[in-house]
Amino acid sequence: METILEAKGISKFFHIPEEIQVLDNVSFSMKKGEFVSIMGKSGCGKSTLLYVLSTMDSDYSGELYIDRKLITGQTPNQLAHIRNANIGFVFQFHYLLPEFTVLENVVLPAKKLGLKTYEEIEFDAMEKLKLLGISDQALKLSSRISGGQKQRVAIARALINHPSIIMGDEPTGNLDSRNANVVFDIFKELSSEKNLSLLVVTHDEDFAKRTDRIIQMGDGKIIS
């Protein structure tokens, strides 16, 4: 199986308010189609690691490979393109553009990528929304739907450009258990049926147990 993501000796310091090391020589790799969860105590550096892996944070030492390409050291514009084309991100808070419709939120990254016509993109987006069971909400403003629905829209948006990997920072942390289960089932299905790679930070033991592999973190290091 080919490697989709590889971190080699990633360390990160914060300098303000005081010099602290948040990531300490983190190394691990992920295979294509794997569903991996990251667990650990609050403040141990899970989110920080995810921001580094998602290329949003480039202030670290060590090396990061996505699709076996070295990401570390690329220009901000190249990183933006990598995020656009290869990475789908789902946040704890749903993070949609409130003044745009559900459909518009989903299509924006694809329009930015610019590989398809607007018609094709909108068709794709409707397919994703159907997959997530919210196609009936497509034309509503994204600020006018429920929290669980918003999280599914965010997942549809993460899927729109067929990324190599989807990352989530506590994507179910803000949902009730029923909605959390819906989101988990969607992830599981994407992983097993579409062979999608998923890397998800979670505090939910049950959630983590059902993934392929759990990475335990503590104090900026990988414990197991």
Partner: peptide, 16 residues
């Protein structure tokens, strides 16, 4: 601010 963060997280560049 949120919109800007989302746009950047989903691949829009600074100059976009």
């Amino acid at each position: 601010m949120n919109d800007i963060a989302i746009l950047k997280a989903t691949g829009f560049s600074g100059s976009d």
